[in-house]
Design a binder for these strands. Sequence first.
DNA 1: GTCTATATTCGGATAGAC
DNA 2: GTCTATCCGAATATAGAC
Lengths: 205, 205
Amino acid sequence: MRANRKKALRNQLIRDDILDAALHLYTRDGYFNTSIHDIQREAGVSIGSIYNNFGGKEAVAKALYGQLVGHMENVVDAIASKHATAHDRCRAVVEVLFDMTERETETVGFILNAKHKEFLPDEPPICSSQPFVKLRDMIQAGIDAGQMRPMDPWVAAACTFGPALRMIHLRLDGMIAAPLPDYLDELWLHSWRTVGVDPVPEGLR
Amino acid sequence: MRANRKKALRNQLIRDDILDAALHLYTRDGYFNTSIHDIQREAGVSIGSIYNNFGGKEAVAKALYGQLVGHMENVVDAIASKHATAHDRCRAVVEVLFDMTERETETVGFILNAKHKEFLPDEPPICSSQPFVKLRDMIQAGIDAGQMRPMDPWVAAACTFGPALRMIHLRLDGMIAAPLPDYLDELWLHSWRTVGVDPVPEGLR
DNA sequence: GTCTATATTCGGATAGAC
DNA sequence: GTCTATCCGAATATAGAC
């Protein structure tokens, strides 16, 4: 049993090495500019291992995608259960995204920037994935509760998160030099004025 | 001379056919999922013509990119010279983008959605291209003229156009069923509240 | 300048030893 | 299960006829 556990652990490590290498290369060079040989070299494993563990290049991307979407979902869930109002929840989402952009740049880049349709044609568009749907529901709940102005939920979502997402894109493209959290208060003050019924609380400006 | 003109015209037509086919296939399937043979078939020309006229697959993309960026630049210039205030200019930009998204879907998709860095590594990022820079200058002018709230120009740009760009992405991804112009008044009313000093004029709500 | 036929490279995938 | 060596198809690019 001991040996089995150790073996399973080693297998998990190999899987993680492959996924880490894939994330790095996919975000840096793009999916199509990354060959299986590149991943194999970067991860320090053999081609055979990649095929045994995943089944091919696309399967690696799919597993990576699932892992990161799951991660995002956990983040959103944690926020939803920690905060009660639409304002606090939405602000926390932006705060976390800004933080992640600095600390887990590649994760954010892969989730937001990559054109998954091009290499994962069977996956639904990222906008209809669980975490994104939960964000929209979060906003709908805010409207129903009278905390956000009554408006089309898509428009509300675009107004709430559009500016922040734009900032993230600009940062990832190297157009913004300063870390995004520096902009959080200013950006959120303006974003929330668009959609919120009540203004941003004093302490958060 | 007559024959030369006619010949030149025919060459131009072939070039346009190739660019049209490339735009269509690149936006529908993505750059890397489109082979030269696909373009050749779609355009109804030979591979030799593509190499003679452009030089290869990447060169086609480059020419296409330049053409569309030039197009966008003309659009922005026309708006800048037609309207005087920051409000009118920015609103006109959003209006034109929404219109274009419906009528020239592929052009907008290629410009906004495509990851040009992946297949045109030598081109600067789209955000630093002429039309985008002009948009930012437009906003800076609005701030200097006291028509927009004093704030970081990147934040201002993100707040002004972020929501609209988000809507365009959602529309291109099929998440929004109605044509974007239907949302223009509502979206702009909220967007401008974020950045404008004076409210949106009565007639445009 | 356009076309068809061909060459060459590259990368995804497999076979078989360990 | 992992690894190395190999295969094979696809796609870019070229050569040469017209």
